[in-house]
């Protein structure tokens, strides 16, 4: 058995080496041109993105007057005070930036938690248990993913308003939806997970609930963490839902949006930029740390991952 594993490892290594060799083979003149052109395009693109961030970072350290006088120059004096000022100056509906960060954390962390917990629960049951309505329910889930519902906005606004979810911390409730893309991804993972673990737990006297929460969920930690990071970033950046339903509880994204709408010539733009820069930090830090987790294992169609 071990030898077989060793062999397959060696084979894979051999394949890898071969493959690298194949890819590194000398490129023909035509290919070289294609790669050259692509490189230039990639380089210019990366430069525009980098420059945009550099520009806003630089502008956030200027005085307002300097920002208008010399928008492209480096700051004469580096005014880090703008960043402190942003906490009090950026205000919408009498919620300042600290409040907005609090709201954003509540909305993003809460929604991520609710959504993934619900998805784990449904996907685990669908992957591992048989029950009467399973096939029908699964078909309905897939159908809802295919049929695009357009114009449900009016009804969903009315429903949330009637349920008193608008401008309420309970806006997390709709996030407790256990179906959709994440359901499918987690289901395929739970299907691959060996059922022996659960059986061992049953023999040890664990019930279904205990087995799920203390054995199977920890085993699925890797995909759950990867999805959680992506989910958190999406919710943190989401402006549409908070714009519709959380007007009096602005999150960072909507707060910055409203502040930009109300910017007048008298307001201090570098302070606004400081707020913008700070709003990016959580996601960029998460992205920097978990880059591989976020960018790898993304699949669609066939859903292998």
């Amino acid at each position: 058995m071990e030898r077989a594993i060793d062999n397959s490892k060696a084979l894979r290594a051999l394949h890898k080496r071969h493959r690298l060799g194949a890819k590194d083979r000398r490129r023909s003149a035509g290919e070289k041109i294609a790669f050259g052109v692509a490189f230039v395009i990639f380089f210019i693109y990366a430069l525009t993105i980098l420059y945009a961030f550099f520009w806003i970072g630089m502008s956030s350290l200027k005085t307002n007057r300097e920002f208008y006088r010399a928008p492209l120059a480096l700051p004469e004096q580096w005014i880090f005070r703008n960043y402190i000022e942003a906490f009090t100056a950026l205000e919408y509906n009498s919620v300042n930036m600290i409040g907005m960060i609090g709201n954003a954390l509540w909305y993003a962390l809460g929604s991520t938690f609710c959504h993934l917990l619900a998805c784990c629960m449904t996907s685990y049951v669908f992957a591992r248990y048989n029950f009467r309505l399973k096939k029908i329910m699964y078909s309905i889930v897939i159908l809802t993913m295919i049929i695009p519902i357009i114009g449900g906005l009016a009804a969903s606004y009315k429903l949330r308003y009637d349920l008193n979810l608008v401008n309420s911390p309970l806006i997390l409730l709709p996030a407790f939806s256990g179906f959709g893309m994440h359901f499918i991804i987690l289901m395929s993972y739970f299907k691959t997970l060996s059922w022996n673990y659960a059986e061992a737990s049953f023999i040890d006297g664990g019930g279904h609930i205990k087995t799920f929460f203390s054995v199977m969920l920890p085993l699925a930690k890797a995909p759950i963490v990867a999805l959680a990071i992506r989910c958190f970033i999406n919710y943190w950046n989401d402006y549409y839902t908070p714009l519709l339903y959380l007007d009096k509880m602005p999150v960072l994204a909507t707060g910055l949006y409203y502040y930009r709408l109300e910017l007048t010539y008298r307001s201090n733009e570098p302070v606004y930029f400081a707020g913008v820069v700070m709003s990016m930090i959580p996601c960029l830090v998460l992205f920097a740390i978990f880059q591989d987790k976020i960018m790898e294992n993304v699949t669609a169609g066939g859903l292998k991952g």
Partner: peptide, 10 residues
Amino acid sequence: IVSSVVMTTL
């Protein structure tokens, strides 16, 4: 990774 609000502002 960055919010659309930020990207559109930029």
